[in-house]
Computed example of a mutant assay.
Amino acid sequence: MDEIINFRTVHEYNLFNNNETLHPLVSVVDLDKAEPRMFRRLQYDFYIIFLKKIHCGDLRYGLNTYDYEEGTLIFLAPGQIIGESKDEYYQPQGTAIVFHPDLLLGTALGKKIADFTFFSYAVNEALHLSEQERNTILDCFLKIQYELKHSIDKHTKTLIVSNIELFLNYCERFYDRQFITRDNVNRGVLERFEQLLNNYFSGEKPYTLGLPQVNHFADELHLSANYFGDIVKKETGKSAQEYIQNKIIEIAKDKIFEAKKTISEIAYELGFKYPQHFSRLFKQRVGFTPNQYRNLN
């Protein structure tokens, strides 16, 4: 198995890239200062966002290469592995902002960092920036860099974290723009999702796999679960899980009219392990138990 280089601290990553450490928990890293190095698999114990400025193939996520372009942002959460090992050298270029989870302790951003789902996006899901958006991002980096170079005082942590949060909020806005500009692609994803759902219930998968899961369809569509969920949410106003449950209820209503089938048989056909779980969900969504709904109709 290929060796994984693990960076436990921000200081270790700064040393690796010939950058000075101005703060132990956060850094804006100029990757142009790094020496040419061999391709290796890398893991970080902190958040890291790359701003790539040229097309290159130096980083891989999982088994797939990111499509880098001018002004492309790639987000990694602590523990993720990126890169590949091969006997070739490359020159890192661009900028990275890195911050340790400990920086966020006791802050408002610490409580909402999990809401920025793009840290779990993967293949073909990087954020591609317009020139104006790129300038906005660079301005955020400059503000953070200014605070890092400023003498540390009681305001330092608050201002650094506030500027990181501002940067992430801008990224969320720019991702919303990207979802809109790729509307045709997203609609295609939704159409394929609907087809996969129909195929799921028309075959044996409810018996073999149980209730359909969001991860299953994300894998089928070659998307990360978070990116897939965000597409469904922006296109339909519902979470992917809610969309699946709506489909379950829709099919269940049809099956309930088949008088020869018991409610338990219907539950098992839909993938429920226990009929009472089906009855509970049905009542939550419809307002009646399956038996009550059958009698009413």
Results as ranks from 00 to 15, higher is better:
residue 1 M to Y: 11
residue 5 I to H: 13
residue 10 V to L: 00
residue 13 Y to A: 07
residue 16 F to K: 05
residue 17 N to M: 02
residue 23 H to N: 04
residue 23 H to I: 00
residue 35 E to A: 10
residue 35 E to W: 07
residue 35 E to K: 12
residue 41 R to W: 08
residue 41 R to F: 04
residue 45 D to L: 08
residue 48 I to C: 02
residue 51 L to C: 10
residue 52 K to T: 08
residue 53 K to E: 14
residue 55 H to T: 12
residue 61 Y to M: 07
residue 66 Y to A: 09
residue 67 D to W: 10
residue 70 E to G: 06
residue 70 E to M: 06
residue 71 G to Y: 01
residue 71 G to P: 01
residue 73 L to N: 05
residue 74 I to T: 07
residue 78 P to C: 03
residue 82 I to N: 09
residue 83 G to F: 00
residue 87 D to R: 13
residue 88 E to W: 02
residue 89 Y to A: 09
residue 95 T to K: 07
residue 100 H to G: 10
residue 104 L to I: 08
residue 106 G to Q: 14
residue 107 T to V: 05
residue 109 L to P: 00
residue 110 G to Y: 12
residue 110 G to M: 11
residue 118 F to C: 12
residue 123 V to H: 13
residue 124 N to M: 10
residue 126 A to E: 10
residue 128 H to D: 03
residue 133 E to T: 05
residue 141 F to G: 08
residue 142 L to E: 14
residue 142 L to Q: 13
residue 146 Y to V: 15
residue 146 Y to P: 15
residue 147 E to N: 07
residue 148 L to F: 00
residue 148 L to M: 05
residue 149 K to R: 07
residue 150 H to K: 11
residue 155 H to I: 08
residue 158 T to P: 04
residue 163 N to Q: 14
residue 168 L to R: 03
residue 172 E to V: 10
residue 173 R to F: 13
residue 173 R to K: 14
residue 176 D to G: 11
residue 178 Q to L: 01
residue 182 R to K: 05
residue 190 L to M: 08
residue 191 E to A: 13
residue 191 E to F: 15
residue 194 E to Q: 05
residue 209 L to N: 15
residue 209 L to S: 15
residue 213 Q to H: 05
residue 213 Q to K: 09
residue 214 V to P: 06
residue 223 L to C: 06
residue 226 N to T: 10
residue 229 G to T: 04
residue 232 V to E: 02
residue 233 K to G: 06
residue 234 K to F: 01
residue 237 G to H: 07
residue 238 K to L: 02
residue 239 S to N: 05
residue 239 S to T: 01
residue 244 I to F: 02
residue 247 K to F: 13
residue 248 I to P: 03
residue 250 E to D: 13
residue 254 D to E: 05
residue 258 E to Q: 12
residue 261 K to D: 11
residue 264 S to Y: 12
residue 264 S to M: 14
residue 266 I to Q: 09
residue 272 F to R: 14
residue 277 H to I: 10
residue 279 S to L: 10
residue 284 Q to V: 04
residue 286 V to W: 07
residue 290 P to N: 06
residue 296 L to I: 08
